[in-house]
Design a binder for these strands. Structure first.
Length: 494
RNA sequence: GGUGACGUGACCGAGUGGCUAGGUAGAGGUCUGCAAAACCUCCUACGGCGGUUCGAAUCCGCCCGUCACCUCCA
């Protein structure tokens, strides 16, 4: 089996073929760091984390780029030109970059907690102004952009004649003209309402600004990803992704920018879009206010949820649905996920105890076990269907549990078949799905319990038990101190 | 208005022309000092109406319902 992925650009599943095997370039549109991340923001990173983990497992050399957008997009075209970052900064009376740094730090913490490995490159838009200016110059030189009053706009109708705009989202420019609003500010500078900004001249009160050939200003909303993707992944990356809501206009514009610049490609061969997370069937979003902040839901009740859920439970919950399906959050669903996750973790712990009891090869139970093992990856290979691979894991886990409790069954499988199955389960759960055991037991409380047994043993003068407990804790780097006030403990200073 | 999804058993969610994913919940059982875990069995669904087919939840048509994008949004 080989990996196939659904490509939004072609609207079908395609066998994955790297542009330059064994190297694979993956780009995920990252967060705009002017506020806390919510659950919906976590789906893309989790999906792409599994994707890159799996690609690496398949032997590819992956370069995974996930950007940080710290040049805030404008709050809306209707306001005075103050962007999100500045607005947040003004509210907190700090530097815009401080806002960006703060939320970028928080974001990284949350992503790490969710088991998402750090990207190989995490470029910031503000650090790539030069590249963006260079790309604008190319687009102008190629005749697909024009300058008005220090701002530069992408000429969509002209581009459409040469390359056809809207291939990704499958919409013609006639359709879009019908639905365009004519009430937005700054529209008068554009030749067509469909045109989008590549560079905006900064209004006097605009803090974040950079010099450019056209004006002191800031780059357009879609340019950073094109510029940074090209810089780090070349003119044609392998996979570019983000949420479904980024397909249009964001990704559509990225493709247009790349085609119109000297890049001359669709920027990426495969375009992947994860579906939305919903609450009672409605998309979770900042603007609707129905979001659940990650930091909140890890700790306790948040929004519509009556209790908290640990990062790993959230990760498992997200992976139990296919990434192109919408997934609805609810306590019922999360609680079910939590039990499933723990079951899988208990399975992981069971593997250590599962040792073969038979010598021979090709025993009667092997075929069944091998079938279950082989089935583990059919889901992932089919457009990263984690839900199916997880189902396969549970099927294999049931087998493991049977083997663990039924000596006759265990005697029927060979060491080789069992070893393969155990290794595959471990690899899939821990390395590819990235599910780690979350210790739930509280060490302090376990220690207190142990000390109470110690005290009891001491009272009974059962010194053999006392010594065993002492030695065991010593092994953990903890010494027991019998004081007049009672039993205490301290870290061993040895 | 344009574009695109989706409607699966009590709940969450895969699948998609024949071989009834999986998890959670529920019922019964094995095991068991109690309990838990585990295992076995049961509950067998695909919005509605037509059509194609030997056979459709799966393909086609119509209808109903829900959602997303077209404006910042993961």
């Amino acid at each position: 089996m080989s990996l196939s992925l659904y490509n939004t650009l072609t609207r079908k599943k395609e066998e994955f073929q790297p542009v330059h095997a064994p190297q694979v370039g993956v780009y995920l549109c990252g967060p705009t760091v002017y506020s806390e991340a919510h659950l919906g923001n976590a789906r893309g990173p989790v999906v792409f984390d599994v994707l890159t983990r799996y690609l690496r497992h398949l032997g590819y050399q992956v370069r995974y780029v996930r950007n940080i957008t710290d040049v805030g997009h404008l709050e809306s075209d209707a306001d005075t030109g103050e962007d999100k970052m500045e607005k947040a900064a003004r509210a907190a009376r700090i530097e815009p970059m401080q806002v960006a740094q703060h939320f970028a730090n928080r974001y990284r913490q949350h992503m790490l907690a969710l088991g998402c490995l750090p990207p190989d490159i995490e470029p910031q838009a503000s650090g790539h102004i030069t590249e963006q200016i260079g790309m604008i110059a190319e687009i102008i030189a190629n005749g697909f952009a024009y300058e008005v009053n220090g701002s530069v706009y992408f000429d969509v109708p002209k581009y459409d004649e040469a390359h056809r705009y809207g291939r990704l989202s499958n919409r013609g420019i006639e359709d879009q003209l019908g639905g365009t609003r004519d009430t937005l500010a700054g529209q008068d500078e554009k030749r067509s309402p469909l045109d989008f900004a590549l560079w905006k001249k900064a209004a006097p009160e605009h803090i974040m600004r950079w010099p450019s050939p056209w004006s002191e200003g800031f780059p357009g909303w879609h340019l950073e990803c094109s510029a940074m993707s090209r810089k780090y992944l070349g003119t044609l990356s392998d996979i570019h992704g983000g949420g479904l809501d980024l397909m249009f206009p964001h990704h559509e514009c990225e493709i247009a920018q790349c085609q119109a610049s000297n890049t001359g490609t669709d920027e990426s061969r495969v375009w992947m879009h994860n579906n939305m997370i919903t609450v009672n069937g409605t998309k979770m979003s900042k603007s609707l206010g129905n979001f659940v902040l990650l930091g909140d839901m890890f700790k306790g009740p948040a929004g519509p949820l009556v209790q908290g859920y640990s990062p790993m439970v959230v990760r498992f919950f997200l992976m139990q649905a296919h990434y192109r399906s919408p997934v609805d959050v609810s306590d019922d669903a999360l609680q079910a996920a939590r039990k499933g996750y723990r079951k899988l973790m208990n399975g992981l712990r069971l593997l250590d105890k599962l040792a073969p009891t038979s010598e021979g090869a090709d025993l009667p139970g092997d075929a069944d076990l091998r079938k279950l093992t082989a089935d583990l990856y059919t889901g992932l290979d089919d457009d990263l269907n984690t839900a199916r691979s997880i189902a396969s894991l549970f099927n294999l886990l049931r087998k493991f549990n049977t083997l663990a409790t039924t000596p006759a069954a265990l005697a029927d499988v060979s060491a080789a078949a069992l070893g393969e199955a155990v290794a595959a389960y471990r690899t899939l759960v821990a390395d590819i799905l990235g599910l780690q055991d979350e210790p739930r037991a509280n060490a302090e409380q376990l220690l207190a319990l142990t000390l109470s047994f110690y005290s009891e043993a001491k009272a009974e003068k059962a010194y053999d038990k006392v010594d065993v407990i002492r030695a065991a804790l010593k092994g953990q780097g903890i010494v027991i101190k019998d004081t007049k006030a009672g039993v205490e403990w301290a870290y061993s200073e040895e």
